[in-house]
Amino acid sequence: MSETGRSVRVVVVDDHPVVRDGITGMFTAEPGIEVVGEAAGGDEAVGIVSRAAPDVVLLDLRMPEGSGIDAIRAIRATDPERPRILVLTTYDTDRDIRGAMAAGADGYLLKDARRADLVRAVHDLVAGRPVLAPVALATLTDRSPRPALTSREIEVLRLVADGTTNRAIAGRLGISEATVKTHLVHVYEKLGVVDRASAVRLAWESGLV
């Protein structure tokens, strides 16, 4: 039960039916947790979350019908705090972890988590306690220096922050659009993010732009 005395309402999002059914079945048998919706992709998840008003959303990151990152961002655009969002995935790279947390996820677990840990995670998130797999915690607390951006990469990033398109950046800098995309790939890798919005946000926070 949640601290309010009612069952914790959960939405499960995963493109693999067997995984989705397994998680749903596990929670259905668990007192104090109620599965109020399922989705096979990020786009579908946003609509279900809006209708079902869950306390917690469990979702994978990479799905063919709308990514988990996009879904997190869309949900957070509506409410920056509710529902709590728990990423449950097989992906454990620095880029995936930082990208999910930057988008607004509240927790990050891998699919090899034990049943008891997953149940505990749902209750912990509702209570406002952090939930992070060891690899995610190590990534987010790593203070080792990141590779420095080159002057051209910073130049491209500043133009992106101004809302300039790749084509316009190419024209402004006298380079090809493919070269602009290559610079952005390097920027994402160095900053540990997955898209333009996260790169710009981190650049602002770091004083790069």
Rank of each mutant, 00 (worst) to 15 (best):
A102K: 12
V131E: 12
L173Q: 02
G107Q: 11
A133H: 11
T89L: 10
R129S: 05
R158G: 14
D106G: 08
L132A: 08
I175C: 10
T179V: 05
K111T: 12
G99S: 15
L157A: 06
E155I: 11
D92E: 12
A178S: 14
N166H: 04
G163Y: 02
R152P: 08
K181E: 07
T141D: 03
L125Y: 14
H123F: 07
S144P: 02
A168N: 04
G104P: 08
A138R: 13
A148N: 07
L88M: 10
I85L: 13
P147G: 15
G163M: 04
P134C: 09
L110I: 12
T150K: 15
L173N: 02
R158W: 06
L109N: 11
P130Q: 10
L118P: 01
R129E: 09
V119W: 14
I175H: 00
I85R: 02
D96Y: 01
A133G: 02
D94A: 06
P147R: 11
G107C: 14
G163E: 04
A127S: 15
P130A: 15
G163C: 08
P130E: 12
T165M: 15
G171N: 10
I85A: 14
T89M: 06
L137H: 06
R129V: 10
A127D: 06
A138W: 13
A102V: 02
A113R: 13
D162P: 02
L157G: 00
T90D: 09
E153C: 07
A127M: 06
R114G: 01
M101I: 13
T93K: 05
A161G: 02
I175E: 00
G104M: 09
G171D: 06
V156H: 00
T179K: 07
L140S: 12
V87T: 03
H123C: 02
R158I: 09
P145C: 13
R167L: 14
T164D: 06
E155R: 03
D106L: 06
P134E: 06
A136C: 11
S144Q: 11
R120E: 00
Y108F: 15
A105K: 10
L159A: 01
D94G: 09
L88K: 08
R84M: 09
A168H: 09
S144H: 06
R172P: 05
T164G: 03
T165F: 13
I169R: 00
I175S: 04
P130T: 08
T182R: 01
L173S: 02
V131H: 14
T141V: 07
R95Y: 07
S144Y: 01
A138H: 05
G128R: 04
V160K: 00
P130V: 03
R143N: 11
E155N: 04
G107Y: 12
R167T: 12
R84K: 12
R146E: 08
R114T: 13
A178P: 10
L132P: 03
G174C: 11
A100H: 05
H123M: 04
R129H: 13
R152M: 12
D106N: 14
V119G: 01
V126G: 01
T179Q: 14
L132D: 01
S176K: 02
N166Q: 08
E153T: 10
A136N: 00
A170I: 09
R115H: 14
R120W: 07
D142L: 13
S176R: 03
R95S: 11
V122P: 01
L149K: 11
T139V: 12
A178T: 12
A116V: 15
T141S: 15
G104F: 05
A116W: 08
E155G: 04
L125H: 07
D94W: 00
D92M: 06
P134H: 07
